[in-house]
Amino acid sequence: MKFSTAASAFVLGLCATGTSAFAAEQIHIAGSSTVLPYATIVAEAFAEANPSFKAPIVEGGGSSAGLKEFCKGVGDDTIDIADASRPIKDSELEACKAAGVTEVQEIRIGYDGIVFASDIKGPDFAFEPADWFNAIGAQVLKDGQLVDNPNAKWSDVKAGFPDWDIAAYIPGEKHGTREVFELNVLLAGCKATKAYDAFIASGLAKGDAEKACAKVRKDGKAVDIDGEYNETLARIDSNKTGIGVFGLAFYENNKDKLKVATMNGIAPSVETIAKGEYPVSRPLFFYVKKAHLGVVPGLKEYVEFFLADQMIGPRSPAVAKGLVPAPKEERQKVLADFQAGKTL
């Protein structure tokens, strides 16, 4: 038929124009959705500052998905950079090496802070990790005994907290944020309340006791949010006595709706996180395929551009968006390590 002839001619034409476009013309990035806003800011600024390179393509998808894509191999159809909100795991590095990605460069770009916030019209909260552990831990210490969490209201957790039903919206288990939350809040609270010692005394090994500490109650008082922070905000909008976990940047953008709580008496801010005073923060990374440097146009320049003070320094656009900058020496060391070609 006439139509199908035209159609096949079109497809053939597509293939003909396509083969030439196959060589990687631009940087391809995928990974953590926490790093995504910073990566896009830098990608945009990079394209504006270097009109000779094409703008990098940045995808989200999560740290694990990004690293999996990253470790698929070397070549045009694989990504060049994986963003991650946690260090690469040994198992992932092995998978990388097995697929031929033998040289991986680690770039630490700064820090991310996690804040606890409730509705703007509610009372002020001053939390300690122990309060969170007692509120949402699966098993807590009561009168010296390990029991299933009996606390139903915040006022049960600590005198002085409001008479609110506990409703905590915490990051879901696939979130990179969850690990930091478990380590710096639940585990810290578990140790502070001596529940950790009780777990050990009950015969658990060290690792199992830590796992027991990080376990969250399953009776609906703690809700895992697997989506974005917007969803957490919507939950708090509909339940004014809920308390949510947010990224610092998200909170900064929604200050008119949310009231932030202090942790160990320290209010989260770019300064307190950079100084290491605020306890709930984590480093952010991206990983570069060394084999692609010099092959993908602009890759080396992009990494150096990313590490410039103008991008992730104290008064940079990434910081305005919520990134907590690393101290100057650390930033300089990261850049020097990259330029020296240091690999993992």
């Binding site: 597509l14 124009t17 396509g18 476009a21 990566a39 703008a55 995808e59």
Partner: peptide
């Protein structure tokens, strides 16, 4: 295809 793409694709092979 859920990606941050600044530049217009010129062919269907472009991101």
């Amino acid at each position: 295809m859920k990606a941050f793409v600044v530049e217009y694709p010129t062919t269907p092979f472009d991101p």
